[in-house]
Measured scan of single mutants.
Amino acid sequence: AQFIESYVCRMCSRGDEDDKLLLCDGCDDNYHIFCLLPPLPEIPKGVWRCPKCVM
């Protein structure tokens, strides 16, 4: 059997509050909206890229 790795935030390495986890459309990394600098108030609509992919 294969275990699917749960999504974890690249900043805090936690997978809780998954309703606040953002998936980068560039590299598929995950980030909590409140772990980003600056934090986001809510999940953005449409395409989102993490700080690494925006640079």
Rank of each mutant, 00 (worst) to 15 (best):
P39Y: 03
F34S: 12
H32F: 02
G46R: 10
G15W: 07
G26D: 11
W48C: 00
G46V: 09
L37K: 15
M55D: 13
R10F: 03
I43E: 11
I4N: 05
L23T: 14
M55P: 15
M11N: 13
L22E: 03
L37T: 11
D25Q: 07
N30Q: 14
V47Q: 15
D19N: 13
P51T: 03
D16P: 12
G26M: 07
R10D: 04
A1E: 08
V47S: 13
E5Y: 08
S6V: 04
D25S: 11
L23S: 14
S13F: 07
M11D: 11
W48P: 04
L37I: 11
V8D: 05
D18T: 10
P39H: 01
C35Q: 00
R49F: 04
F3P: 08
C12G: 02
L21M: 07
C50A: 01
C35A: 01
V8Y: 08
L36C: 15
C9L: 00
E17F: 11
L36D: 00
L21G: 02
S6Q: 04
K20P: 11
F3G: 12
K45Q: 05
V54H: 12
D18K: 15
K52R: 12
M11G: 10
C50D: 01
I4H: 09
S6A: 10
I43F: 07
Y7M: 13
V8A: 10
F3V: 13
E17Y: 05
L22I: 15
K52V: 09
C9I: 03
E42V: 08
R14S: 15
N30A: 15
L22C: 11
S13R: 12
A1G: 07
D18G: 15
D16Y: 09
V54N: 06
L37P: 10
E5L: 04
L37Q: 09
H32Q: 02
C27Q: 03
L23H: 05
L36T: 08
Y7T: 15
C27P: 03
D18E: 13
E42S: 06
D29R: 12
L40F: 02
G15T: 13
G15L: 09
G15C: 15
R49W: 10
G26K: 14
K52L: 05
E17W: 07
Y7C: 14
K20Y: 11
K20I: 03
P41M: 03
H32V: 02
L23Y: 08
E5A: 05
S13N: 07
P39G: 07
C12W: 01
S13E: 15
F34M: 08
F34R: 13
E5D: 13
I4Y: 02
C53Y: 00
F34W: 10
R10I: 11
S13G: 13
C27H: 00
C9W: 00
P41N: 08
L40S: 04
P38S: 07
K52M: 03
R49L: 08
R10M: 11
C27V: 02
P41Y: 06
L36S: 08
M11E: 15
H32G: 00
V54L: 07
K45I: 06
I43T: 03
I43P: 05
M55R: 09
V54W: 01
W48A: 03
S13Q: 07
V47W: 03
R49G: 04
V54K: 12
Y7A: 15
Y31C: 03
L21V: 05
G46D: 13
I4K: 11
C50V: 00
V8F: 05
R10S: 05
L21Q: 05
F34Q: 11
E42A: 11
K45E: 08
D28Y: 02
E5V: 03
C9F: 02
